[in-house]
Amino acid sequence: MLTFQYNHFSLKTQQSELIRSINNSVKRNLNSNYSFSDSISIESGKQLLQNQKRLASLNEIQGKNIKDLYANNNILDLDTSSLYKLQTSAGTAAIYQVSNTGNVYMPYQDLGLDENFTLPQSDYGDISKISRILSGLAKDQTAFTVRFSGSSAAEIKDTLSKVGIKPGWFEIKSESQSNRFYLTDGGLVYPEYQIQAQTRAFKDTNWLKDELGYSSNSKFIIDGKTYKLDQNGYLNLPDNVDCVMENIKIIK
């Protein structure tokens, strides 16, 4: 009986020691993994900072000057013989190049940035969005690719504002072509020919036709200024007035 009690006690003691040993081993592994991950995080952070500093220090590459990617009087002139710099939301100086066809992109390989070159994750999104929107406007006078690119109107407006483009008429020039658009306050982009067609329609319509329901007292408020129909029912608008639907209010 005494022997049994002793063996039982010894077995319980051994189990307790084993459990304690396992717990200590797990703790050591956890601490070791945490330290290793923390070390990787620190090294990655240092590498990101070095990459950002490297890009910020560039002023010229292979004889090409690096200019600010910024519009002048709402005209963005993209020259294939130059490189362009634009700061991302994370503060990185992204470098862009323009192809003969108006494609705007960051030439990682030409900049000597190999596959191990890393930037903050948000930078890649910013760089891609700028490339997609500016390339679409430079190559496509219809603005179709930009309006249906997956970016919201607010995102498009914010992206264009980063390169100095404000609501109203703006122009994207490249060696292949020059495209003119209208940017609304809400961020919608319309091609020039669409606004011209809308303006002609407003001018050429006889608004006093019975089926339209307008009268000589009707008011057309365009860009905050009020216009009225003439005695023949037509809207005589000055040449500098553009009929953008978002900027028009009609009171019958």
Results as ranks from 00 to 15, higher is better:
86 L>C: 08
127 I>K: 00
236 N>W: 08
44 S>D: 02
152 S>E: 05
81 S>T: 09
97 Q>D: 14
237 L>V: 15
75 I>E: 13
100 N>Y: 11
83 L>R: 04
187 G>M: 12
120 P>F: 07
219 K>D: 02
214 Y>V: 05
131 S>D: 06
126 D>K: 05
250 I>M: 14
105 Y>H: 04
3 T>S: 14
142 T>D: 00
76 L>K: 03
43 E>L: 15
204 D>F: 09
130 I>R: 03
215 S>F: 07
162 K>L: 13
51 N>F: 00
21 S>D: 06
26 V>P: 04
220 F>G: 11
173 K>C: 11
14 Q>F: 13
148 F>I: 00
7 N>W: 05
177 Q>W: 08
190 Y>E: 08
222 I>N: 08
151 S>C: 11
10 S>L: 10
116 N>A: 06
6 Y>M: 05
110 D>N: 14
18 L>Y: 13
227 Y>T: 11
97 Q>G: 07
192 E>Q: 10
212 L>T: 09
60 E>H: 12
97 Q>T: 13
165 I>W: 06
51 N>L: 04
243 C>T: 10
117 F>P: 00
194 Q>D: 08
119 L>R: 00
193 Y>I: 04
196 Q>K: 15
185 D>V: 01
34 Y>I: 13
182 Y>N: 04
199 T>N: 03
8 H>G: 06
193 Y>N: 09
195 I>W: 06
139 K>H: 06
178 S>P: 02
179 N>S: 11
107 P>F: 02
46 K>T: 00
91 G>L: 02
100 N>D: 11
245 M>H: 00
238 P>E: 10
42 I>Y: 06
133 I>A: 01
226 T>I: 09
220 F>L: 08
30 L>F: 01
69 L>N: 01
247 N>D: 13
31 N>F: 03
119 L>V: 03
154 A>C: 04
52 Q>E: 01
135 S>F: 03
188 L>Q: 15
175 E>N: 15
232 N>I: 11
212 L>R: 13
117 F>I: 05
18 L>R: 15
56 A>I: 05
54 R>L: 08
185 D>T: 05
118 T>K: 14
140 D>C: 06
197 A>F: 11
201 A>G: 02
23 N>W: 01
177 Q>Y: 13
244 V>S: 04
212 L>H: 02
39 S>L: 12
131 S>P: 03
235 L>K: 03
43 E>T: 15
81 S>K: 14
22 I>N: 08
230 D>S: 11
232 N>G: 15
232 N>D: 15
107 P>T: 06
148 F>R: 10
234 Y>N: 11
175 E>M: 13
131 S>W: 02
196 Q>C: 08
90 A>R: 12
153 A>N: 15
207 W>K: 02
90 A>I: 07
99 S>E: 07
212 L>F: 08
194 Q>N: 03
